[in-house]
């Protein structure tokens, strides 16, 4: 009973996540309309056969905007996770494998990063570097580092206490080789869960930054912009706010179901 429900959740997560990523991929080559094409004549149309989700205040096709926005969101979140994993996982492995002093150094550095509210630092970063999609990637990615470093370290420390790591040392293998051959493969399931969660957080963070005008720059479409633009129009066209909002919720829910499902499968 319980297991069946968990499986349904996991499957739903897989389906939703795949769907969104497929849509984002599709948007690279094709959208129903050019998301940048403005047609004031057709502004604020309700959903119809021509425009499935209607048009916005500038007459742009809402569905095309959503699809192109998915491209931006998935892209930014994915690159941010890549930065986080690329720096965080090696740091975590290093902290777990190396003597106390390096471990302390890495982890206290982590604490320092943790101490800053991430959105605040992102704003600071954009203030220095100027807003843009790449700045959003870096700002979100940097905050993935300490999280992944910490999860990696905790999981790796447990593996290091196991006899097969001692056996590998007795076989003359060094810390780097053991981390690569034994530790990393055995903590991958744990990392997969965390990466999924960081990905979903990245989606939300990207939307947040774009909403504030600090992320992807107009006219490039983004879910955060769509929300921001719709804000003044909620009284006349509430669907313009509801549609991107619901899309974000749905995608993040799908990712969290996927992450939770992965965790449950690991526990089983």
């Amino acid at each position: 009973m319980k297991i069946a429900r968990r499986r349904i959740g996991f499957l739903a997560g897989v389906v939703i996540t795949t769907l969104f990523i497929a849509i984002a991929a599709l948007a690279i080559v094709w959208t129903p309309y050019d998301p940048a094409a403005i047609a004031i004549v057709h502004k604020l149309q309700p959903p119809s056969a021509l425009h499935w989700l209607g048009t916005d205040q500038l007459g742009r096709d809402e569905l095309s905007l959503l699809m192109a926005g998915a491209k931006a969101s998935v892209g930014v979140a994915f690159l941010a996770v890549l930065i986080g994993a690329g720096c965080g996982i090696p740091l975590g492995l290093l902290a777990a494998a190396r003597p106390r002093t390096i471990d302390e150094l890495v982890m206290r550095g982590n604490d320092l990063l943790f101490a800053f509210p991430s959105l605040l630092l992102a704003i600071l970063l954009t203030a220095v570097l100027g807003p843009g999609a790449w700045v959003a990637v870096v700002a979100i990615g940097v905050f993935n580092i300490p999280v992944l470093a910490r999860v990696t370290r905790a999981a790796a420390l447990r593996i290091w206490t196991l006899d097969y790591c001692l056996a590998a040392r007795a076989a003359g293998k060094g810390a780097a080789l053991i981390s690569w051959e034994h530790v990393l493969p055995n903590i991958l399931p744990i990392l997969a869960v965390q990466l999924t969660i960081q990905f979903s957080l990245g989606i939300v963070a990207e939307a947040g930054l774009s909403y504030l005008g600090l992320g992807v720059q107009p006219p490039a479409p983004s879910w955060g912009h769509m929300l921001g633009d719709a804000q003044t129009l909620t009284a006349i066209a509430p669907s313009l706010a509801v549609i991107p909002g619901a899309t974000i919720v749905c995608f993040v829910l799908g990712l969290n179901l996927l992450g939770g499902g992965l965790r449950a499968r690991r526990a089983a």
Binding site: L162, D163, Y164, L166, A167, A170, A171, E181, H182, P185, N186
Partner: peptide, 12 residues
């Protein structure tokens, strides 16, 4: 070389 106690934890 070494042989450990736990026949479950000694192998990756």
């Amino acid at each position: 070389q070494i042989v450990f106690q736990d026949p479950y934890g000694s192998f990756d």
